[in-house]
Design a protein around this nucleic acid. Structure first.
Lengths: 334, 334
DNA sequence: TGACGTCATAAGCTGGCTTTATGAGCAGGG
DNA sequence: CCCTGCTCATAAAGCCAGCTTATGACGTCA
């Protein structure tokens, strides 16, 4: 089956013996595993896109056409990807190419990388904030980080030529932009709509108590008592952050928050501290799906506390969004 | 200024015109922003890793050291990333470099790409299946695709030198490998444990009815009636797949499944069909989190049907796993 | 059998990223 | 006060991956 063996080891591309190696002593490619960084073991985005195209078309040539390269380039690139991974990805035949079983698995993993890259792309483009943007969005950090890219991808699918710009900031900054006419629609998280704005709830965000798997709480059977949570020093965002406000309010009836174990400036820093075992933290469920899935963090249920906040689209009171902003809003309502 | 990065094609002016026109006239039929594929607009993995390192260290030089390049290379690479994105990412000062606000956002999006790449990496390494593996895992497709990479990342964090190999297949194949001694532990999805195996439930998987946002059901208020679901032609996996078995069983009391609208060979194909509006589909929640978040698919609740299946770790009856396999198991139990 | 499809091979070019070598700016200690 | 040590920026030269064009080999179908 498949001519797999027919060609000599392919495009070893006349690289050869240019002796001199720079001062990069670290990684030798000899023998066993490449011990370098991710970027040495994972094919680049272009190769992954090509692989997805091959999966779609069942043909190297057609895939090459889709991504705008020639057939030999595609052939060589897939082959070097197979060499790099040490796995046969496609079964070549004179009638086309189909993914092997392993190739299907690899392709699905690749798809997740490419999807993350799409979110990055659409977000970065919005961040560039060109002046000709048809839709100017102001959003809180959490929303800009976790939800907006998905919305923008969906928006692009529906209205491909809507240029979007994004400004991220806290609730006050969002309100300011809206009042100044610098943004067409805003997104904020928190307990109430800022004065002078109207809004609708577009999503909910649960706050979750998490600890590293090594923490004793990770082996608890039952849920935690709110008073116990309130009495425990936590890793927290600085005072004034949305997350901390909600937590404060929720625990006010149980003695209030204990003195923080650590106060950090960003969600990411808090997450990193929690993962590394510094202590329990309370974070948005949006921020920790990955960590929960890979067991770097463990969620601890807490009884009888509503750690939940609303995520709202907002606009200056009375000026309901129209045009592209309305299109975006209609995407965000579940 | 940087002369206009050469467009995807464009550079043809230089030498193109030989008699035969090259295949590069391949113009994208994709609507929307046509120019350039993802890989031209998104920095490569190495650059993203570097950016994360800068975020961690607050210094270009230290970040360079971490990823194994020199400081000038890091400086240049960050700079070209900023040019590519059109956004200032770091504030440089004689005392170090800190992310700008936009840089923090970009870095968080970058982190998601890198995390997906880590999952790809650990999965691909396992797939390579070297003979010296200390832990040989056999798993069903769904588990191998969505859950195993996360588990393996966690395992690597705890036991860095555990070489893992992975064989993916259906339940029967998993059982076979276990009996033959080709695998140390298996993971299967389905209603029951195969004969001759013991196992524990490690997770649950809900099946979800989804439609494209354009489908009339997407605008329903209430949940769907099971009989209505049963009577509707669906996009399905081929007969015999785990998903379809569960669906069949769940709807047997409501008239049984209608004639399929489409029968496709992979979860991915079903998902793609559903996204493109071919019709309603029932898929594992694991497979559609991304699509739900970005509104490419909408979940429709169904009343009174238990579309749920167990995901189990399994091993030959009586031979409870030990060693690395036991370490893995302890990670998978929530 | 010949036309068309597939993929593989070969050779040459280009450009991005790298390296080494240097310079400039700011901080803190002797 | 200036030297030492950190930071980042610039410049010149070289490697290498990947691209292209040109061709060949193989299989299928009318």
């Amino acid at each position: 089956m498949s001519r797999e063996t027919r060609g000599p080891r392919a495009a070893d591309g006349g690289q050869g013996a240019h002796g001199r190696r720079g001062a990069r002593e670290a990684q030798a490619e000899h023998g066993g595993e490449p011990r370098g960084h991710l970027s040495h073991r994972v094919p680049d985005l272009g190769a992954l896109e090509l692989l997805l195209a091959v999966a779609r078309h069942g043909s190297l040539g057609a895939a090459a056409r889709e991504v705008g390269i020639t057939q030999p380039a595609a052939s060589s690139r897939i082959r070097s990807m197979e060499r790099q991974l040490g796995v046969a990805l496609v079964d070549r035949s004179p009638r086309g190419s189909r993914l092997t079983d392993a190739g299907a698995l690899v392709t699905d993993w690749a798809r997740r990388i490419v999807e993350a890259a799409e979110a990055f792309d659409v977000g970065a483009q919005a961040l560039r904030g060109r002046r000709d943007s048809r839709l100017r969005v102001a959003a809180s950090m959490t929303i800009a980080e976790y939800l907006l890219p998905g919305w923008l991808i969906a928006l692009r699918a529906q209205r491909p030529d809507t240029a979007v710009s994004l400004q991220a900031g806290n609730s006050a900054a969002v309100a300011e932009r809206l009042f100044a006419g610098d943004a067409d629609v805003g997104f904020v998280e928190g307990l109430a709509v800022p004065d002078g704005l109207d809004g609708v709830v577009v999503a909910h965000d649960r706050l979750v108590l998490v600890v590293a798997p090594s923490h004793p709480w990770a082996r608890r059977r039952g849920p935690l008592d709110p008073a116990e949570l309130a009495a425990t020093p936590l890793v927290l965002r600085e005072r004034g952050s949305g997350t901390r406000q909600v937590l404060d309010a929720a625990l006010s009836g149980h003695g209030g928050l204990a003195q923080p174990l650590l106060e950090l400036a960003s969600t990411t820093a808090v997450k990193a501290a929690a993962v590394s075992g510094a202590g329990p933290a309370v974070l948005s469920e949006l921020a920790i799906t990955e960590e929960l899935a890979s067991r770097r963090l463990v969620a601890i249920p807490v009884d009888g506390v509503l750690l939940r906040r609303d995520l709202r689209a907002v606009w200056p009171a009375g000026h309901r969004p129209t045009g592209p902003a309305r299109d975006l809003l209609s995407l965000t309502r579940s």
